[in-house]
Each structure stands twice: as C-alpha cells, then as structure tokens.
C-alpha cells in the first residue's frame, strides 16, 4: 500500500487495522482464551483407575498424590480406590506431580505427571497398573 493510499483511509482504520495492533491484539486474545480455559479447569481434580497386571480393577489400593517441591516429591494426600478401582483427588495444588498406588499382595506402581497449569483437572488416560516387578524396585 502506497503512502497516499494509506493516508486516504479513514483515521480509525489507519490506527486500528495495521500489524502493530492486530498481532498484539491476536496474542492478547489467545491469552484471554487460555486464561478462561485455566479458570474453568483448575479445581485440582486428579482421577484415574488402578488395575492389576491382568487389567482387573483393584479395590482398596492405597493411592498417594506426591507434589514436586523444589527438588523432591513430597507426599500430599492419600486415598483408597473404590470397588471399580477408581480414585479421585480434589486438592492438587501443583503442576508437577507423581501418583503412586500400592496394595499388599498385588504390587505397586508410580507415575510422574506434568500438567499444563497448577491444579489442572485431569483424568488418567492409562490406569495405574500394579505389578510385582515395580514392587521389587
């Protein structure tokens, strides 16, 4: 666009429709949408299932939530699995956690999890699989 064409446009168009406004505006829009998403999905809910090596749900397994604290993981809270092997934590404050599950005679399992923001609500796509092998480790 030539300088003359630019001057021929209405003043508000010259001020608003240019790359110096549109690009930052687009970035601000992304930030707003992202923050809305965070605001509606940060209740600290972590849920999942615990199964044994054969894939059968394990009831009564002890599941612990570990929260990364600077250099190590600290135990935050504990819960028991229900009859269908499911569990749920509702007070995860972190974005860097570990889940461990254990049941005597069945085995144990531990998985680290990285979240996109603190207290992100998340459901495990893969169940915690208890095994004797991880028990030995």
């Amino acid at each position: 666009m030539s300088f003359e064409d630019d001057l021929a446009r209405p003043r508000w168009k010259r001020w608003l429709i240019n790359r110096f406004v549109l690009v930052p505006g687009f970035l601000v829009l992304i930030a707003i949408v992202w923050n809305c998403w965070v605001f509606t999905h940060n209740h600290g809910v972590v849920s999942g299932r615990v199964v044994d090596a054969a894939g059968t749900p394990v009831a009564g397994a002890e599941v612990k939530l570990w929260v990364f604290n600077f250099v190590t993981f600290n135990e935050r809270t504990t819960t028991q699995t229900r009859a269908d092997g499911s569990f749920e934590f509702t007070d995860n404050p972190s974005h860097n956690i570990q889940l461990s599950a254990e049941k005597a005679g069945v085995g144990r399992s531990r998985i680290p999890m990285r979240l996109y923001f603190r207290s992100e609500d998340i459901t495990l796509t893969q169940p915690l699989r208890l095994s004797r092998e991880s028990d030995d480790k």
Binding site: H95, N96, R114, L115, Y116, F117, R118
Partner: peptide, 11 residues
C-alpha cells in the same frame, strides 16, 4: 518435545 519447561518457569 514438550512445553512443560515453560510451565516450570512460569511458576
């Protein structure tokens, strides 16, 4: 590749 180092920095 993953974006979690950016999350670490943010917090």
């Amino acid at each position: 590749p993953h974006p979690f180092y950016y999350v670490d920095v943010w917090y």
